[in-house]
């Protein structure tokens, strides 16, 4: 709305960006390494966890969500939420199809 004339956007500087860059590269190395180790059941979970960690760094810092308004944060959460509904509710069908036949 009008009225708020203050410049609300924080400018994120190079230092943060460099730190995130290295964290992301580290995460990439880590996830490649992890995929070569046999962790059985945990392999995909770790791969997705690391990917999610990386994605969060990108969203929060490269995309400035950490410094943004509640509205932006809520928008991101809404997206993730709906995405999860699509996937999880669809999978409820696939996972349980073979359970006992009625």
């Amino acid at each position: 709305m009008s009225g708020q004339n203050k410049h609300a956007h924080t400018i994120v500087g190079p230092r943060v960006y460099v730190a995130i860059l290295f964290a992301l590269l580290l995460g990439t190395a880590l996830t490649v390494w992890a995929s070569y180790v046999d962790l059985g059941f945990w392999n995909p979970i770790i791969a997705l966890a690391i990917a999610t960690g990386k994605a969060m760094l990108v969203v929060l810092f490269f995309m400035h969500v950490w410094y943004s308004t509640k509205l932006t944060k809520l928008t991101v959460v809404a997206g993730v939420f709906t995405f999860m509904i699509l996937i999880s509710m669809t999978l409820t069908d696939y996972i349980s199809r073979a359970w006992g036949s009625w």
């Binding site: 990439t28 992890a34 995929s35 070569y36 046999d38 995909p44 791969a47 690391i50 990917a51 994605a55």
Partner: peptide, 13 residues
Amino acid sequence: IYLFALLYLISRH
């Protein structure tokens, strides 16, 4: 980032 984890790294051992 997700495609890489899901398509390339399913299981490399």
